[in-house]
Design a protein around this nucleic acid. Sequence first.
DNA 1: CTGTTAGCGCTTTCAT
DNA 2: ATGAAAGCGCTAACAG
Lengths: 347, 347
Amino acid sequence: MPPQDKLELADVARLAGVSPATASRALSNAYGVSPATRARVLEVAERVNYVVSPEASGLARGTRQRVALVVPHIERWFFGAMVSGLGSVLRAAGFDVLLYHVGDSEDRSRFFEQLPARRKVDAVVVVAFPVADEERARLELMGVTVVAAGGQNAAYPFVCIDDHAAARQAVDHLLQLRHTRIGMIGARDPAWPNWPVRPGRIQAYYDCLEAAGIEVDPALISTVDWGPEHGAEGMARLLSLREPPTAVYAHSDEIAFGAMSVLRRAGLRVPQDMSIVAIDDHPLSAFLDLTTVAQPVPEQGKLTAQMLLALLRGEETDQAMHVPTKLVVRGSTTRLRSAEENTGANM
Amino acid sequence: MPPQDKLELADVARLAGVSPATASRALSNAYGVSPATRARVLEVAERVNYVVSPEASGLARGTRQRVALVVPHIERWFFGAMVSGLGSVLRAAGFDVLLYHVGDSEDRSRFFEQLPARRKVDAVVVVAFPVADEERARLELMGVTVVAAGGQNAAYPFVCIDDHAAARQAVDHLLQLRHTRIGMIGARDPAWPNWPVRPGRIQAYYDCLEAAGIEVDPALISTVDWGPEHGAEGMARLLSLREPPTAVYAHSDEIAFGAMSVLRRAGLRVPQDMSIVAIDDHPLSAFLDLTTVAQPVPEQGKLTAQMLLALLRGEETDQAMHVPTKLVVRGSTTRLRSAEENTGANM
DNA sequence: CTGTTAGCGCTTTCAT
DNA sequence: ATGAAAGCGCTAACAG
């Protein structure tokens, strides 16, 4: 009996010999229905394969049970993993997930201009991207709870890693390996030019070097768009310096992958000729032997969702929540060798 | 004026000095409203920031304007890219995207048992996974259009690559490079044991070797779960053979990445000691110099969505649609060298 | 515990 | 071209 969805509550009620009201109560397991009646209604509903109309139910009860996920780059591991974590707890809580993929700045502005999620959701989660002031103003029009997953977003409660701490783990690792000429390949997001995506990842570089008494050489800092191809670009630039770094700290594993490919092509060995460390622990990093600072991504999604649910229940929650990161030492970093034991570090 | 969503059509109508009926017509740009009136209504709606209640509107007009995407592994590039393609055309057509992430077999059976999307969507897209018969039966209960993206699914209209052809491009490439001992690392999905995920990718191996007059050595076939860690496993097994292959064809780039890591650790060089080719053209493949058969993923998503929209409009469409693949030769494959010019190919 | 009665906010005949 | 009125399918008082 295919399009069984033609059956409505009234039918079930009639079949069960009760009023629609009672049937409704039985189905939504509210109080005030005798076990026998409820059982009968449930049995009938089951038998005829009945499901409530969410539109009607939502209209009547003024609820939506839906949350919007606004995601910039769904095809990237990080965002997918975040969505996966968010989704699992939201679904478990009976919420449906409406996905709004804002791949480029055009999608982005369309989303905030038109607010396609208006009146459709109880909350929105902005996944790992900074919300501009005007955008925040627009979002406000929706009048719903907003939280941020995987990126600090002063404006909303958020959960993410402590970028500064993570970056410190990376840079300190290099420092401990006695490197002093440490390059940094930083990432910006082309969709948000002039917006330092992860200020903490930059600041930590300065702070660590300073703490180690090393003066920052601006030439060693390369800022590129996100992505392996640009990581490659950044590395190439560093290699072209008269005095290249002996180690590089990349803002993300994917940047590092690109950097490593340039090194390989230049005939330089990792880690002997160049140490490299990054942040993320991408699923492929173990296979590329990349030393990195791991962050738990699906967990961040789950925590964000839990925070959101608490907020929706009207509970108080922290404005910020940080999850810990952990340095994973693999084969891409090694102790700086002194000049005499060195073999071909300078191109 | 934050929760502006309290305004209803009636308010707009009043403010514009018309009846709700007229206001409704004006907003849904139906016929039968004088330009002047329409303009006035639109102006008011705009000014007070009005949006229709999708629940009420949907209830009244019996429509949903939503499609469900059922996605197995959202954190993997392939699925994310597919979703991105699907989403862009669906959104452009005014549909909202409901995401159902079925990560493991438990999620899966829950999805098909409970059919959480019932009565919520106009269609469902199963993204790159085979639907079992019982599952199809359940899906039927929803009484909506179903299409498959990125994987053939005899049961539903679908768009995907021709696996057999793609695999042939890969294996023939190896054959042309004079390899004769060609290994295959095939992938199965742990969530669907005993289900050959991509039969065409296996069959083509047999067919190509046969066409080349080479007898298939079962020892050269290694079937593993999806993922780099298992690709590594598969490669290790092949390497442990008394007479290992000189080239390997992997079902997917991510399998190949794992395989390559094992080779590197074993001190074997790619491609000198082992050629390796795969299918996908993962965004990182260019940086790992992997020869592979590229498939256009977001395009498949777009095409699937277009096919779905056509179906929803009641048009006829092809039951199957194949997108072309293309061999991308990079550095992981090379001509088989004869024994005498060989250096250390046998562990 | 159960039935009756109003709506929820919008669309859509059917009149005018 | 516009308005009045009757629902769409369900839930939430309010009685009993």
